[in-house]
Design a protein around this nucleic acid. Structure first.
Length: 160
DNA sequence: CGCCTTTGACCCGCGC
DNA sequence: GCGCGGGTCAAAGGCG
């Protein structure tokens, strides 16, 4: 079954390279440390974070397109929206979601195709550190019905 | 009350 | 150095 190749890992034993302490350290630094020290620390964190991100992206980045009237597919995981952005050359905003499971740093971006608004481009980054919250069967069915093409790569698909 | 979405502000990298 | 674009933060408000 070709379409199963695009399924996200429903569970994984590999841990994310992101430190779960990152956010706490970051917040504390902004509250307690002097400005210059904050900047230095932020830069160090940012550099480390960037390396982590690059590592994740190289390892786990799943991009696929579905044809669907709804933006957010029910893939069995719980997601919390943390941002929305109008991106250039696209009339539709891009939405940013994080897995709401504790200590799971998987993210996904959702954006409609600028030329064909029926197409939803979904980008997953990272690997879930926990089992799927509910049966992924529904997601499988959705994919079976809606999948029109998929990519598993390190670069996003063209959105034009 | 806890978790979610919304949304403007902020940060950072990059190209010029 | 500056401006732009993309990604994230976090306060405020909503909902079950």
């Amino acid at each position: 079954m070709e379409k199963h190749q695009v399924m996200l890992p429903t569970s994984s034993t590999s841990s994310t390279p992101f430190s779960s302490d990152f956010k706490v350290d970051y917040i504390n630094s902004t509250v307690h440390v002097e400005n210059e020290a904050i900047r230095t620390q932020r830069k160090a964190i940012s550099a480390q974070n960037k390396r982590d991100k690059e590592f994740i992206i190289k390892q786990h980045r799943y991009v696929f397109q579905t044809k669907s009237p709804v933006d957010v597919l029910d893939d069995g995981y719980q997601w919390r929206k943390y941002g929305k952005k109008i991106v250039k050359n696209n009339k539709f905003p891009r939405s940013y979601y994080r897995c709401s499971h504790q200590d799971c740093n998987v993210k996904k971006q959702i954006q409609r195709h600028s030329r064909d608004e029926q197409i939803v481009v979904t980008t997953y980054e990272g690997t879930h550190t926990h089992p799927v919250d509910k049966s992924a069967e529904s997601f499988d069915q959705i994919l079976g019905n809606l999948l029109i093409g998929n990519l598993v790569c390190n670069v996003p698909p063209t959105l034009e």
